[in-house]
Amino acid sequence: MNKNFELGDIVKMKKQHPCGTNAWEIIRTGADIKIKCTGCGRIVMLPRSKFEKDMKSVIENNNTANE
């Protein structure tokens, strides 16, 4: 299972958000991970250990390479 993620990636989480989606955008990384629901815009901050445990996969990579 690929657990590599970066700022701006869209990730799939184990549990569905009450708004009906389980896709989240990573908006901050560090000791804590801040994610934003792609459905309703709700922002949640999780400890890195809990985030890595609950993340299922990366849906979409943020490919903003400096060109």
Rank of each mutant, 00 (worst) to 15 (best):
N2R: 09
N4C: 06
F5T: 03
E6C: 04
G8R: 01
G8S: 04
G8A: 02
G8F: 00
D9K: 04
D9E: 08
V11T: 04
K12T: 10
K12A: 13
K12R: 13
M13V: 13
K15D: 13
Q16Y: 09
P18I: 11
C19H: 08
C19T: 06
G20L: 07
G20Y: 04
T21W: 00
N22P: 05
E25K: 13
E25R: 12
I26G: 05
I26Q: 03
I27T: 13
T29S: 11
G30R: 02
G30P: 03
A31W: 06
A31Y: 10
D32A: 12
D32R: 14
I33D: 00
K34I: 08
I35T: 06
I35R: 05
K36G: 01
K36I: 04
C37D: 11
T38C: 08
G39E: 12
R42D: 08
V44F: 11
V44S: 09
M45F: 04
M45Q: 13
L46R: 07
P47G: 11
R48T: 12
K50R: 12
K50C: 07
K50I: 15
F51K: 02
F51E: 07
K53G: 10
M55H: 02
M55K: 02
K56C: 10
E60A: 14
N61K: 15
N61W: 09
N62K: 12
N62H: 15
N63T: 14
T64S: 12
T64I: 15
